[in-house]
């Protein structure tokens, strides 16, 4: 979602100016008539318009201020304190919480889980999403139906999708055994095995999300200029060369959108982790986001949770920052 914003900001401002010009009516044939109306009433009318503006945006502004911006400030303060969230007040401890996090080896494991999970989802989304989009772009009968079924899991609750996959991963009676059995492979214990739990999480998560990625890529593919492909054909370029030299580079803004939304998504994932693994076995699938929940609401350690949340926030800011710069440089050449 953030990409959207960044990618469009340029045209945004131009549009806003246009609208301002339209409403204030500066210049153009109507301006003399309007100037005549200026007078004692003018300022009263303008004040009325200002108050109406404030009235209209204030409910939204109040909610966003209270539940989006205030938390950033207060969370930053909490990360410098120790507090059990129940009684007493936060006690200032300086950078202690951050120090504890960075020196704890289990936290290193959690960071590694987060990065592994995120990287697997990003790579999986880009590769599989693009492959699906290329398939959906062919004129095949029934592609509309397949596209619909592939997109459907994206709007189903993560808790429901995860519960379904929990059953699929049942080593004795699940669908995974049905699929693996003909190949003579015994089903792993998936979510109950520390070596397999993260893989299980990645599979279920990708199944829920790649239909969406495919649709995004498909929209990108359908926007590519026809002429380039005709030119490439005339030059005798093969399918693979055309794909590598034309399609991939032209799709790079879409790829970046997918990259950033995937990273943001995995960094905020709760529902599928909660249902599939609960962060376990042990810490095997505990990511940064799950750690924040656990510390805050299970271990009642507001300081540690807040420090981990700040860390996560900074990582995401860097990612979105990079994306904004990249998109500004690159998006225009399409």
């Amino acid at each position: 979602m953030t990409t959207t914003t960044a990618a469009r900001r340029g045209q945004d401002d131009a549009g806003a100016d246009g609208a301002a010009a339209a409403t204030s009516g500066s210049g153009g044939p109507g301006s003399t008539a309007r100037r005549r109306r200026r007078g004692p009433h003018h300022w009263r009318r303008r004040r009325k318009e200002y108050s109406l503006f404030l009235l209209m945006i204030s409910p939204n502004l109040l909610i966003i201020g209270t539940f989006d911006y205030w938390p950033v400030i207060y969370n930053a303060w909490l990360s410098l304190t120790r507090w059990n969230m129940i009684s007493g007040a936060p006690r200032y401890v300086g950078l202690q919480n951050y120090e504890n996090l960075f020196t704890s080896s289990s936290f290193h494991g959690i960071l590694l889980n987060t990065l592994t999970f995120s990287a697997a989802i990003v790579v999986g989304s880009v590769v599989l999403g693009l492959a699906l989009a290329l398939l959906f772009d062919q004129k095949l009968r029934g592609r509309g139906l397949v596209r619909t079924v592939a997109f459907a899991p994206h709007i189903v609750s993560g808790a429901a999708v995860a519960t379904l996959w929990l059953f699929i991963f049942d080593p004795a009676y699940g669908l995974s055994r049905v699929v693996l059995d003909p190949f003579g492979i015994e089903s792993p214990r998936w979510v109950n095995d520390a070596d397999w739990a993260l893989i299980a999480l990645v599979i279920a998560y990708l199944w829920k999300g790649i239909g969406f990625v495919a649709i995004v890529y498909l929209a990108g593919l359908q926007n590519l200029p026809e002429e380039l492909y005709e030119a490439a054909k005339l030059d005798g370029a093969g399918t693979w060369t055309t794909f590598r030299r034309i399609t991939l580079p032209l799709l790079s803004p879409v790829t970046f959108f997918v990259l950033v939304t995937s990273i943001i998504g995995t960094f905020q994932a709760y529902d599928m982790i909660a249902v599939l693994t609960g962060g376990g076995p042990g810490d095997a699938t505990t990511t940064l986001s799950w750690f924040v929940y656990q510390q805050g609401f299970r271990a009642s350690d507001a300081g540690t949770a807040a420090a981990a949340a700040m860390l996560l926030f900074v990582i995401l800011l860097v990612v979105t920052g990079l994306q904004t710069r990249f998109v500004q440089r690159k998006v225009h050449y399409t």
């Binding site: 979602m1 953030t2 914003t5 945006i57 939204n60 502004l61 966003i64 539940f67 989006d68 911006y69 205030w70 938390p71 950033v72 207060y74 969370n75 909490l78 969230m85 943001i264 960094f267 905020q268 940064l288 986001s289 924040v292 929940y293 805050g296 609401f297 507001a302 949770a305 807040a306 981990a308 949340a309 700040m310 996560l312 926030f313 995401l316 800011l317 979105t320």
Partner: peptide
């Protein structure tokens, strides 16, 4: 207001509960 899109839910969780 648009900047609020950059605030991840993890950061708001604890404070919003409070």
């Amino acid at each position: 207001m648009l900047g609020a899109l950059m605030v991840p839910n993890n950061v708001t969780l604890i404070v919003n509960y409070i």
